[in-house]
Design a binder for these strands. Structure first.
Lengths: 192, 192
DNA sequence: GTAAAAACTTGATATAGATCAAGTGTTTTG
DNA sequence: CAAAACACTTGATCTATATCAAGTTTTTAC
């Protein structure tokens, strides 16, 4: 499924044939079965990972054993733990597959090499990072200013496909509420 | 106070004399009195802004008129609205000064020019962006998994100087709780 | 295809934190 | 330096959402 990534690159950058081939030469294909881990708490994350198909979730587990979903990532998005990667420290997160998934991994050394050698690639990466940051800011704002119901409505508007692919329990956790609360909210909003 | 920014650059990058001078040639010094706005909701943000002294807050106002503090920024940090800047759309945020402050502004065109011309500058900017993203992720995690008291303790541990410079009302808003709740938490934790 | 596991719903009750209200203390500014 | 504006505290009460519990539906896996 490298073509999906190639297509993504072609949409986001202009690369020479040699550059494209250089990128491809570093790509590691990785398949994950549903429920399989990509990263477990305590591991040091060493990759930059692009999802060609499927859906993953990043979550942490607190002292009481409750899971908190930090993010969902689907096809044509990147995933991983930037903090563990940047500081080479044990991750506080788990990343696992919600669906059978296929990813393309680059070791971080190779990825940095590509960023250095291919300015267009570097620019693409920076743009993605900026958008991720903006999305994180917006999520913080939503968590500060919206009620549980508003958070849910905001979520389904922003990510229309997600509600049907992701178990409600996980969505509830992502939104910072219990599954029961989300279930009741859905019942109410369905009426309207 | 350009020296503060120069020192910051010297710590984070290695620049030639010519590069340093190029950067300085674009710098716009801006002074803000306490309570003065740097950006108001509806404006389109056009700069990259470095704070040499003082303290600013970024906040939004919801339909009910309540303010929600998105972030605080102090000396040696950057501020602005990346979303408004990136998409050249009206900002949903206000940024104002909590203390008399002094900033260095670069118009975004100039800033992008610097990133293109000076790879070391570009790398510095990317590193900052990555750290900002990591901080945002951590904030999301905290908001999902901590109680009000834990959020406050986490905050003062992470940003030790802030509690004495910033009004409690604003800290409460930043942490997603009411000023009354924060006041009670502080009373309790003071006892221990 | 069926038993077990996982996901979702619904009701009853509890609680963390919000809201309202009235006070005190502390800056700011003319 | 006085008075207005702002910041903080404390108490009483309320409410959105959590928790606990028991049932139903859907999915998974042999």
């Amino acid at each position: 499924m490298y073509e999906i990534f190639q297509k993504y690159l072609d949409e986001k950058t202009i690369l020479t044939k040699a550059e494209s081939e250089l990128i491809q030469s570093f790509a590691i294909i990785k398949k994950l079965r549903k429920r399989q881990y990509l990263l477990q708490e305590g591991d040091i994350w060493k990759y930059d990972a692009f999802i060609t198909s499927g859906c993953l979730r990043t979550y942490s587990v607190d002292e009481k054993g409750s899971e908190h979903v930090n993010s969902f990532s689907i096809e044509k998005w990147w995933t991983g733990d930037r903090e563990s990667l940047m500081f080479q420290q044990p991750s506080r997160f788990n990343i696992d597959a919600i669906e059978d998934s296929e990813l393309i991994l680059f070791t971080h050394d190779n990825f940095e090499f590509l960023c250095r050698e291919i300015p267009a690639f570097n620019n693409m990466v920076n743009t993605i990072l900026q958008k991720s940051f903006i999305a994180a800011q917006n999520r913080i704002q939503a968590s500060l200013s919206l009620t549980a119901e508003e958070k849910y409505l905001n979520f389904i508007t922003k990510y229309p496909g997600f509600a049907s692919r992701i178990p409600q329990t996980m969505i509830a956790s992502y939104l910072g509420m219990t599954p029961e609360t989300l279930s009741r909210i859905r019942k109410q909003t369905a009426k309207k």
